[in-house]
Amino acid sequence: MAENVHSVSIGEMIVSSNPDDVLVAYGLGSCAAVILYDPQRRVGGMVHSLLPTAPPNASLDGSAAKFVDHGVPMLIEALLRQGAERSRLVAALCGGAQMITAPGLPDTLNIGSRNVAAAEAALRAAGISLRARATGGNVGRTVKLIIKTGQMTVKCAGQSEQPLT
């Protein structure tokens, strides 16, 4: 079976219903990846966001996925357009680690937990509950979605791949 691995880079969103596709966000640190999957329609998507909220005057042309508060609704819309049902969507959240812990650096750098909170809020606002998560801590993660089965895995730095639960 051929597997097409698609890397979801920082500030990108990918949606797919091709059973051969595997979506991967590599090396998530403070960034957050939100994954949504409709098990009946077998369509899923992933968004890899960097910041919790867009500043009021930010230009969002082609870069809305950088921001959790825009990226999550955008992902939901894209999935609905591909035939997903909102009520069937399974959600997972990964990343949001605190990467910098040195004394004397400002708290504004600690965006990991704010990314997680923004993702939770965006999903709650859309009426979608979280089924699986691997968030917080201070470790980088790689997260994967297999479109054919809806299986999700997470791999932490220096560890082996595990099912995302």
Partner: peptide
């Protein structure tokens, strides 16, 4: 950490 995680800090 993973390079991607470090780059996230720089880009944020």
């Amino acid at each position: 950490d993973m390079l991607g995680a470090i780059m996230g800090v720089v880009a944020a």
